[in-house]
């Protein structure tokens, strides 16, 4: 927590407009300018300039000495971790993680089980706070703001940084109520707002056509792949900037996995996505940037193609060629 960043729950007045997210209150619900994917321009100059105008030129993603791993120099950094360490009690799960995650891209975190990639992911929206006896060192910046600063509203942070889990977690409510859960707890109650919002999120998650006639049915009746897409739609409903995905397809069959991957490909145009995966083919398919974790350290980060074809570190090479892990 070395960097003192100013934070205010309602950032209208005092946050510089250049740091993404002009005004949460106005833009969070509804969000008329987000058109469904097909027309959105890919890359950094998209249709969402109003929402995320070019920020101050932040340094490109770096990993210690192995600098210049940026896929796109023009793209701004969304999440920045510096010298981050993480402890479960006295056990150090992460050490000295320095990683910059560019906005509107997919960053994959790979590595053997227990290497800390999920812990890293969960520290980006402070989900680890729920676990007793955890401690974090170093800084995690979202749009330049320290998310572990004392005055940060965790509830507000988690609305901006959505999360999808390995196991789909539909609430025992109707499909509609599942999607509307986030907006409702944020105080949106009018059906005139909720109905189009739910429709938009379900369309974004490529689920609308399958469920449009049974929005009142229980979400538990959906298939596993549908439930996972429902969870993605639910996460989108709070209108986050960032989507964290913790092995979102590992419990799904190949067909559903392909649909989730297509979905990720669509979402990258508007969202910053960080995905943990055990499946290296999946990382290669969906991500632009890949970070390889091992034993609580960030071993290597680079453009996905470069990392998979020409890794700089011996450990990375051993892992991706299947010699260990």
């Amino acid at each position: 927590m070395s960097t003192e960043q100013h934070h205010s729950p309602t950032p209208d007045s005092d946050r510089p407009p250049s740091v993404g997210q002009a005004s949460q209150n106005e833009q969070r619900f509804p969000q008329p300018e987000v058109t469904p994917m097909p027309n959105a321009v890919s890359g950094s100059t998209g249709s969402l300039e109003t929402r995320r105008s070019a920020g101050p030129s932040l340094p490109p993603p770096t990993l210690g000495a192995a600098a210049n791993a940026t896929p796109d120099a023009k793209r701004t950094t969304k999440i920045q971790t510096q010298d981050m360490g993480f402890f479960y009690g006295t056990h150090q799960a992460l050490q000295k993680i320095t990683l910059n995650i560019p906005e509107r891209s997919v960053t994959a975190l790979i590595g053997p089980s227990g290497c800390g990639k999920s812990t890293y992911l969960r520290s980006l929206n402070r989900m680890n706070d729920i676990i007793e006896g955890t401690r974090i060192t170093g800084t995690v910046l979202l749009d330049g703001e320290d998310i572990y600063a004392r005055d940060v509203d965790v509830v507000e942070l988690r609305k901006r940084v959505g999360m999808v889990f390995q196991k789909s977690t539909p609430f025992p409510k109707s499909i509609f109520d599942n999607i509307a859960f986030g907006p409702r707890i944020a105080g949106v109650s009018s059906m005139a707002t909720l109905t189009p919002l739910v429709e938009r999120c379900l369309k974004q998650a490529a689920l609308w056509n399958e469920v449009k006639d049974r929005l009142k049915d229980s979400a538990l009746a959906l298939s596993g792949g549908q439930q996972q897409r429902l969870c993605i739609a639910r996460a989108l409903a709070t209108n986050p900037d960032v989507l964290l995905m913790d092995e979102p397809a590992s419990a799904l069959d190949p067909g559903s996995t392909a649909r989730i991957e297509d979905l990720i490909d669509d979402l990258r145009k508007n969202y910053t996505i960080v995905i943990v995966t055990h499946n290296m083919q999946q990382a290669a398919r969906v991500s632009e940037l890949t970070a390889f974790f091992c034993m609580g350290r960030l071993v290597e980060v680079g453009r996905t193609k470069q990392l998979f074809t020409n890794p700089k570190e011996k450990e990375t090479e051993d892992y991706i060629t299947g010699r260990f892990g």
Partner: peptide, 8 residues
């Protein structure tokens, strides 16, 4: 966790 992740 899913609830907390939605800002609940």
């Amino acid at each position: 966790e899913a609830g907390y992740a939605l800002g609940a």
